[in-house]
Design a protein around this nucleic acid. Sequence first.
DNA 1: CTGTTAGCGCCTTCAG
DNA 2: CTGAAGGCGCTAACAG
Lengths: 333, 333
Amino acid sequence: MDKRTAQTLADVARLAEVSEITVSRVLRNKGPISERTRERVMRAVRQTGYLPNRIAGTLASAGSSLVGVVLPSLSNIVFPEVLRGIHAALSASGHQPVVGVSDYDEAAEERLVAGLLAWQPAAMIVTGLDHTAATRTLLRRSGVRVAELMDIDAPPIDLAVGLSHRAAGRASVRHLWARGYRRFGYVGHDRGRDRRAGRRYEGLRQALAEAGGGLVGEASVDGPSSAAAGRKALADLLAGGSRPDVVVFSNDDMAVGGVFHCLANGIAPKRELGLFGFNGLEIGEALPLPLSTILSPRFSIGEIAARRILAEPRPAVPESVDTGFEIVAGATA
Amino acid sequence: MDKRTAQTLADVARLAEVSEITVSRVLRNKGPISERTRERVMRAVRQTGYLPNRIAGTLASAGSSLVGVVLPSLSNIVFPEVLRGIHAALSASGHQPVVGVSDYDEAAEERLVAGLLAWQPAAMIVTGLDHTAATRTLLRRSGVRVAELMDIDAPPIDLAVGLSHRAAGRASVRHLWARGYRRFGYVGHDRGRDRRAGRRYEGLRQALAEAGGGLVGEASVDGPSSAAAGRKALADLLAGGSRPDVVVFSNDDMAVGGVFHCLANGIAPKRELGLFGFNGLEIGEALPLPLSTILSPRFSIGEIAARRILAEPRPAVPESVDTGFEIVAGATA
DNA sequence: CTGTTAGCGCCTTCAG
DNA sequence: CTGAAGGCGCTAACAG
C-alpha cells in the first residue's frame, strides 16, 4: 500500500507508531491525549490523507450522523427552501441529510421511510401529518426522533413544526372580507394529493360559510401547481360566468399565473379582481404589483425542526410548534 | 426483547429457526433458497417488523448504496430540478442521495466532499468543474466514480454532464444579432461566485467582439440572482444613460425581474427593449409575454449523470457528455 | 440448498 | 495518558 494513502486507522497508527485507539481518540478529540502524541498522529493523518470511515464508526458506536429527510416534491421552490433550513441546522451540528422525494404519494413515502431508517439515522424529518399507518408504526418503533414539517392541524408522532393551514385559509377570508370582497372564487391544483392546500381550502370554506358567504366559483388543474396552471385555471374560472370579485389561489405559483392572466388581458388586479395567494414567494414581491398573500416561514420551519430534533431527547408527550404565518397586504387584493 | 421487534438478523433467524446467513440471503434475494425456507423467513420478518441495518451491511460488503451530492445552492429552482433528476435515477437503482450545499463556496465544497466520502458512497456527484486542488485530489483518490454536472467547458475528473456555457453565451449573441439587435446591455449577479454565469458572460463578450460590437452598458447585483434583483439592476442600467436595444440577463430569474420592470414602467419588451434570459424556467413561459431564453436540460443532466455514473465502471479516460441547450424564441427579444 | 467461520473498520470497556 | 480485547450487525468465502 502506498504510504500516502491510508485506508484505515491501523495504517495511520502504524505510521505514527501508536495504537489504533489513540488515533481514533485524537481524531474525535476524545479522552486525554498528550500534545506530543496528538501531533505525531496528526502528522501521520496529513501525510496519508486518511479519511475516516463513518460506516464503521457508526456501526461501532451505534449512532450515525445521518438524518433522513422525506419531501413531497422538489418542483415547487417551497420544499427546497425547507431543505435549505434543514441543511443549515444540520451542518451546524455535523449531520448530513439523506433525502427522499415521495411525489405526494403516501405509499412511496412509506418505502422511503423504511429505506432511510435502515441507515440508523440520528433523526427523521418528514413532511406533513398524513402518513400510512405502516409509516407511523415504522417511525414510532424506530426509536429515533421524528419531526413532521409544515403542518400542525393534527396530532404529531413526536414533534410537529409548522403552521395551521386551516387557520391560514380562514385568515385569508377574514382579510379579504374586511377589504370588502364578497364574491369569492377559488383556483386550486392537485385535488386530494396536496393535503395542506386541501386544509387551507377547508378553512376558507368554513370561514366563508360563517361570514354568510360562499364560493361563487372554482376551478382547478390536475397536475402540480405552476404559474402556467394558475393562468389557465383562472381563465377557465372567469370564462365560467360566475363573476368573482376576488380569487384565492391554492398557492403563490398559481396566483402568479393569475396575475399574468390579468396583465395579459387588461384586467386590473385588485380594482377589477382581487388575487390572493399563499406562501409569500420571492417572485410575488417582485411582480409589477406585489402579490397579496400569506407568508409561510419555510426556511425557519426546516431550521427549527432540524435543530430541535437533534438537541433534545424525545419527550414523553408529542409537541407541536406553531411557527405562524403573516398576511402580506400586497397590491393585488 | 419484544418478540415483535427484531433488531437483528439473529433475532429473525432464531424465530425462523434458520441461520443468520439464510435470512440474509432471503432478504437480498441472493443464492438459492427453498420456497419453504423463504416463506418461513419472510413470515418471521413480517412478524417482527425487522428492518435491515444497512450500516452493518455496507461495512461487511464494502459498498454502500449512498451517493454523495454537492449542490451550490437550493435557492434557485435550477438545482432542485437537477436533484430531482438525480433522485429519479438513483431511486430506480435503490440508491439514496446524501446532500450537501456549498453555497457557491469552494472551501465549503471541499469540506462537504470529505464528509460525504466518509460514508463510502457508491459515487459522488458535484456541481461544476471548478474545485479546489484538494477537492480534486480527494475525489481522485477515493476511487469512486465522480460526476461533475452542468458544465463541460473544462476537463472533468471522470465524467462531466452538462452544456458549454461559453457556447450558450455566444449563441445568445448570434440569435439576437440575427434579429437586428446591436446595442447590447448585460445584467448580472454574484460576480465571481457563479462560475457558469461567468462563462456565459465571457462567451457573450467574445461573440460580440467578433461580430464587431460590444456591450453598451452593464449592471449587476452582489447577491444571488432573483427577480427582485433583476428588476432593480435593469432599472439601474437604464438609468445609466447607455441606451441598449437588448439586455441579456445572467439567468431567467433576473430576466423575469427585467420583464416586470418593463411591464411596470410601460416599456414594451422586444419592440422597445429586447430581454433575454438563460435556463428556460417554467415561470418564463407563463409570463404575459413568454420570455426569450435558452433552455438548459436540468432534469436530464441530473438523471443522465446519476444513471451513467452507477451503471458503468470508471473508464480509463475522462469523458464529457454534452446535453446541449435550446434557444427559446419567446416574445421578449 | 444451508451452515460455519472469519472478518469489514471502528469504538467501548476495562487495564495498566 | 495509552493500550488490548471484544464486539457492533452483517456478508464473503468456503464447506457440507
